[in-house]
Design a binder for these strands. Sequence first.
DNA 1: CTTTAATATGTAACCGGTTACAGAAACCGG
DNA 2: CCGGTTTCTGTAACCGGTTACATATTAAAG
Lengths: 340, 340
Amino acid sequence: MTKGKKKNTTIRDVAKKAGVSVASVSRYINQNAPLSTSISIKIQAAMTELNFVPHIMARRLATNKTNTIGLLVADLYGDFFPPMFHGIESVTGEAGFDLLISSSARTGPRTEFPSSLGPHNTDGMLVFWDSLSEAGLHQAYERDFPIVLIHQSPPDKMSIPCVTVENKAASRRIVEHLMEAHGRRRIVFLRGPDHNEDSYWRETGYRQALEMRGIPFDAELVAPGEFDRAVAEQSIRNLLSRGIVFDAVFACDDESAAGVYSALYAAGRTIPNDVAVVGFDDQRFSAYINPPLTTVRAHTEDVGRIAARQLLQIIHDGTADSLTLVPTEIVFRQSCGCNP
Amino acid sequence: MTKGKKKNTTIRDVAKKAGVSVASVSRYINQNAPLSTSISIKIQAAMTELNFVPHIMARRLATNKTNTIGLLVADLYGDFFPPMFHGIESVTGEAGFDLLISSSARTGPRTEFPSSLGPHNTDGMLVFWDSLSEAGLHQAYERDFPIVLIHQSPPDKMSIPCVTVENKAASRRIVEHLMEAHGRRRIVFLRGPDHNEDSYWRETGYRQALEMRGIPFDAELVAPGEFDRAVAEQSIRNLLSRGIVFDAVFACDDESAAGVYSALYAAGRTIPNDVAVVGFDDQRFSAYINPPLTTVRAHTEDVGRIAARQLLQIIHDGTADSLTLVPTEIVFRQSCGCNP
DNA sequence: CTTTAATATGTAACCGGTTACAGAAACCGG
DNA sequence: CCGGTTTCTGTAACCGGTTACATATTAAAG
């Protein structure tokens, strides 16, 4: 429209128009070397006149920095992602970094280090649970590409910083609450996916609570939840039909707690009178369901914020904390028997 | 560790080692020109031996293509984003494009065309409602940078493709349902934010339904919902305390429907017997609340998919549909009085 | 008023790919 | 066996910034 010519205006055009050298223009743009005011003015004038926009890729090629960080996620199920993203974005944005997202939903956990997120394209990468295989991680680790793991601790031998939430203590406390405040004794635990660490620690907390109360662990009371509503519902149905007695359920996450509700409701059991139910995560719907779910709140936004900060720090000076546990807190609603 | 030398291995190193020209190596990598097998083999050998990884930024500088598309969102409230993202990612990923995300949550709607998402850094951009000011849009439009709008139609004078959901017909039908199937007459409408288009069309559908039934529009029955639980709750409280009579509520979105539930519950009114309630969006919690909410399902994932496809098409050949309306469907649950 | 040190600019060589163009090799019909 | 294609391969000039180093300018010192 305007000029007719396809050519981009470059730093050299600006230099010519301002009657100075390209180096000066570059220095003016980056403000990284002293420059006389008279020259600065001329450059500024030329730049605005030519409507000059520096070519980011050229800069990146020359400096070998991308000012971009990569985000590798498995899938965006649940209410998990938005707050996490919000946390991450708030710190990366502040620091002037772009965010490149890649989901492995289509492909399953990447077995290869994803080239689109690797060096040359990002300065570092945030890796969520289940998004990158151990082999893929290893590739990144070897070239010591900056990485921080989220909700996943590093495999043996690799020391990669990790940030996740405090699972065990909160789980222990919520189960203790069921026992102490509401006198429950036969508490079902609904597991998460097999190698999920959150699930592992939540189960550990559950077992510790039993142990402290001298209640023997009963394998019959543990069933799959898979972080999935339908699976959890089926598990509870099974327990019920097999005549197994229980007076409470600790669901590994709120999603499966919702499944518990359905199964219990269908069987005519009331919550919390017949069976108390508690979950983990404090998803958005948890406050709305009936009765409102007692659960553990994970400050997911903080997790994102902290992870991003760690990554920036690695990129900047190579240091980071090897493990950060973000505190969790129990939110007492009605499904456990409180606030009747 | 390995070599001790900092230098990256480049295409020239590969060429030298394979005893061929850089052009051949480039052609081998891109498979864009015939190459004798003998040469191909030598190059492949050299590449694996040197562990060569092409430098993406160099390629981008040379080709002036980024293979990246930008995603500009306001904030990631609600259940809105994950499915949308999923849809987008599925098509961009398939096409080999990266996704650069920028949220304007920290800053409010961008008034400037965000340089990090602009030309040089992305090949095109998906813009959500409320994320970019009209001025910002205009800048992009002038340089005819590929854009498609999501849930927002272009301001006057600019013809930018847009994809959103069908709001009006579904709204009309759900209100008609309230009238015909359940005999409701005094139906409250809870508005969304002021200049939100979804809200506008939903209200239009509401009015049409009234009109077709010969029921006069009553301004007293329209109150703010703002897509916000608390605001909606307060609005219903007000109506109630002012003694305004109504037998149904059409909430502009499910979030505000949840607020309606609270207000009604607090006032001792039952749903759907005293007041029928319907919403819009079919958020995740809507099936879980009590009673399950009758609402309109928007196929958000499709919106994302279609928008992404449109954008790729613009990038590819410059063409696109100026408006795509993704169909919606009513899901009948219990809050309207169905399935008792 | 030189001599020397400090500072501001400019020149040109990078960064690591792509690709227009030209030259070489292989193929083909007559 | 020769000119005319057709198909491969190589050279070198880009893409648009940054920056080490050299040079011009100016200030400080002697």
